[in-house]
Amino acid sequence: MASVVPRKSHNLRYKTLMAWLFTLPGLVVQLVFGWLPVLFAFVVAFQRYYFIKDPEYVGVNNFKEVVADPLVITAFQNTLWFAFLSVGLTFLMPIFVSILLMEMSRRTIRVMMILWFIPVASTAGIAIWKYMYHPNLGLLNGILRGLHLPEQKWLDDPVLAMFSLILPGIILFGPGLIYIAALQNVPEELYEAAELEGASFWRKIWNITLPRLRPIIAMMLLFSVIGSMQVFELPFIMTGGGPGYATTTVVMYIYSLAFGAYNLGKATALAIVLFCAIMIMVGFQRRYFPENIDESSENARS
């Protein structure tokens, strides 16, 4: 007895030590580059930065400037409009395509998946579309001209510009990797049972597939809302925020405040405002679209 207890505690201590040793590098990186900048944002937002001089505290001045700035309102409007359009027009398609894809034979699925996921580097993809939208040399206007339809100004038209940013996502529809992975986990017996009951194609999707995908859909919806609220590269490369301010999103404005106007404090204050806005939306979504799998399956059962 006496010999076992100390050995066990030694073992336990050794295990704990190893556990922390394994965790340490990740812990440090996450602390320094994950959390510290977020916390520090709340310091920067109350400061005014100079390049040669030391920073000074300015109280809530930066937030006052953010509130007074009419461009902030425009940027938020644009961002919300972009998020709405992009989630509304491109969110459902991958789910639908993934479900349909599962009907194909295994070999077809493999071939299609490989062709579908041939990657194009992201900045390269944006450049391709910028070329497509070119008023004279672009393919889209070329097609319109060929069909004797009126040419469009695409990225130059303040109304059309935002649609043009989303259009590639609509045209280039495809399945979602994560949905495919999830669909493979749906037990086939459920469909067979439904088939015996004589359920139609759509009814099966509605009653069996979608409830099963629900947690994944909820999670993806959350990510795509957060993601589209943070959109930067697409408008930055495609339009540079123009024409006028029609595609200036909040993150683009943060960038141009910080690295164009060199107003780091105001940029961070705006980032905090964006942060709060996203957090509110996330809270809202969590309340109305719970992603807890047990809860949803219980709902399905009852």
């Binding site: 009419p70 130059d156 038209d157 303040p158 006028g244």
Partner: peptide, 24 residues
């Protein structure tokens, strides 16, 4: 440039454009 771009690409009343961009 944004003011001119709006003047070229929209049909909004110019006076209101000037007011909007001037405020900005």
């Amino acid at each position: 440039v944004a003011l001119y771009s709006d003047a070229i690409n929209t049909n909004t009343d110019l006076k209101s454009l000037i007011a909007k961009h001037g405020n900005l």
